[in-house]
Write a protein that binds this DNA or RNA. Structure first.
Length: 512
RNA sequence: GGCGCAUUGGUCUAGCGGCCCAGGACGCCUCCCUCUCAAGGAGGAGAUCACGGGUUCGAAUCCCGUAUGCGCUACCA
């Protein structure tokens, strides 16, 4: 499985550096959704723009909410978009890289790290041990709510007399460590996106730093790790804005200089609320499976909350890196607009080389939900390479490939007489036209688009039907579809044998 | 309820005091191209810049209030 255990703090750790260091700090509680990944993207763009470091740190401090496979899904999501990281878990899940590890908070916890810092705060008079039960806490909050008071810890354990403290230490009950929030004054900080933000301390309660299971809370772990990892900018979603004063207070208590903060606008569901399962497909990997291209997704995501100017909207990742600036990040939440994503995807599909498109389409054609079962796999790549140019400007998502190209592969098309007959014609006329076309096509010396077009256009004239009528009937006879790529190209790629067989069958259907 | 943040067409956005009775894009509609569908081209509908007060010669842009939305208010992150 994995090789030897990594050695932490092994070297070239540049302290005294002014280089930018940012981090993406997801908690492995599920498959990351587009909002999570957008946060990662902004951090990455900023790091790369500034020539700094991008760190991935796994905040797995909640044992109850931990989900198997989540770390892999996070790393896979980043990798899919081409977001690379300088420090953090290795992509294959084996080991980690970077001189500030571990990058898993659960491992840092095992080393006693948070315990040490929590104790330092207790010893310094900035925190205290609390053994209030959850039952008591719950009823306290209930009473507060009933009385119209803001809910919050009532600080019962904050100022225990020496004797009571000793008794508490001896009683063996579960204990947490709480931070002593100043009872007066304000805590304010400068946010790179929202300017000055200020909170009254007396509205903050004594939040927990260390849980009774020994794990740190987000507040403690995040502050300790950002400091130890020398993180310079904390760029995270706006939902964290309200807890930032707690973090600032913690930095103060430790005597550390806080990083710079930038609270990103959130990505919202169609009802403008925080993204959740209720909003349908929200995980990044689902979009991948629906046939969106990573470069289109990256481009689209970057524009959700950031813009360069009033017109530029197409960016490669290098261009994004080149232009990205925190000052150009917006303040308001953005609804994830799938239709625009689909448009973007179409743009990228059209501009890529046909060979690349063929390669990317193949798994969607061969996989489930792809071509009908009667089509043998693997599919003929040479044949595919002739089809792709015909559908390239018609594909929006790769998962439409099978629907668009199915008739090229499968004979399982059943032309209904009613669909064969074009406007202004009847069954007999249609059958006659099809049979005449059959004769012309059989006589063709060369089976290619120009020859087909020349012969069939001439035929329409002779038959005194509109080209649209003849071509429409032929299209349906040969493909079983009313909407296809240009007829002659399509017939040419399908091949003489297949076309004649299908058209013959259609003519017979009309006779019945 | 309290606190915080936000508020430009359905959606993403430009705008950081006069160039804006508001520009671009997606979507929608019409037309052109055309063998269908796309793609492409040309037009169009759609915003009293949330509302009300100020400040200013002048406000989408600054200030205050209100409303609305969202976020936070856990031994979750």
């Amino acid at each position: 499985m994995c090789g030897p255990a990594p050695r932490w703090a092994a070297g070239n750790r540049r302290s005294m550096s002014t280089a930018v260091r940012v981090r993406y700090a997801p908690s492995p509680t599920g498959i990351p959704h587009v909002g999570n990944i957008r946060t990662a993207l902004f951090n990455w763009l900023f790091a790369r723009h500034m020539g700094g470091s991008f760190i991935v740190r796994i905040e797995d401090t909640d044992q109850a909410r931990k989900v198997d496979g989540a770390v892999e899904a996070i790393l896979e999501s980043l990798a899919w978009l081409g977001i690379d990281w300088d420090e953090g878990p290795e992509r294959d899940g084996c080991g980690e890289r970077g001189a500030y590890g571990s990058y898993f908070q659960s491992r840092r916890k095992e080393e006693g790290l948070y315990d040490r810092y929590a104790r330092q705060l207790v010893n310094g008079g900035h925190a205290y041990v609390c053994d209030c039960t959850t039952e008591r806490l719950d009823s306290m909050r209930e009473a507060q709510r009933a009385a119209g008071q803001p809910p919050g810890y009532d600080r019962r354990c904050r100022n225990l007399a020496a004797q009571a403290r000793a008794a508490q230490a001896a009683n063996g009950s579960p204990k947490v460590v709480r931070f002593k929030v100043p009872e007066s004054g304000d805590t304010s900080f400068h946010d790179l996106i929202r300017d000055e933000v200020s909170f009254q301390n007396d509205l903050l309660d004594d939040f927990v730093l260390l849980k009774s299971d020994g794990f740190p809370t987000y507040h403690l772990a995040n502050v300790v790790d950002d400091h130890l990892m020398e993180v310079t900018h904390v760029m995270r979603a706006e939902e964290w804005l309200s807890s930032t004063p707690r973090h600032v207070l913690l930095y103060d208590a430790f005597g550390w200089t806080p990083p710079l903060f930038a609270h990103l606008p959130m990505i919202l569901g169609s009802d403008r609320s925080k993204l959740s399962k209720r909003h349908g497909a929200t995980s990044l990997l689902e979009y991948r499976d629906e046939g969106f291209l990573p470069e289109a997704m990256l481009n689209f995501l970057a524009l959700l909350g950031w813009s360069l100017d009033d017109k530029t909207e197409k960016f490669t990742s290098d261009e994004l890196i080149k232009h990205f600036a925190i000052e150009r990040i917006g303040k308001t939440g953005a609804i994830f607009n799938k239709e625009k994503l689909e448009w973007f995807n179409g743009v990228y599909v059209r501009q890529m080389p046909a060979t690349g498109l063929a390669r990317r389409m193949t798994p969607f054609l061969e996989g489930k939900g792809g071509l009908p079962a009667d089509v043998s796999r693997p599919i003929d790549q040479a044949y595919l390479s002739r089809i792709v140019p015909l559908v390239q400007e018609r594909v929006k998502r790769l998962d439409e490939a099978a629907e668009l190209t199915g008739f090229f592969f499968s004979d399982g098309i059943a032309p209904q007489a009613a669909d064969l007959v074009q406007k202004g014609m009847d069954g007999a006329a249609t059958r006659g036209a099809l049979e005449a076309a059959l004769a012309r096509m059989e006589a063709l010396a060369a089976w290619d688009a120009p020859a087909l077009e020349q012969a069939l256009r001439a035929l329409a004239g002779e038959l005194q039907v509109k080209t649209g009528q003849l071509f429409g009937a032929l299209r349906f006879a040969a493909t079983g579809s009313k909407a296809t790529p240009p007829l002659f190209d399509t017939l040419a790629v399908l091949g003489r044998e297949r076309v004649l067989r299908r058209v013959r069958r259609a003519a017979q259907a009309l006779a019945a």
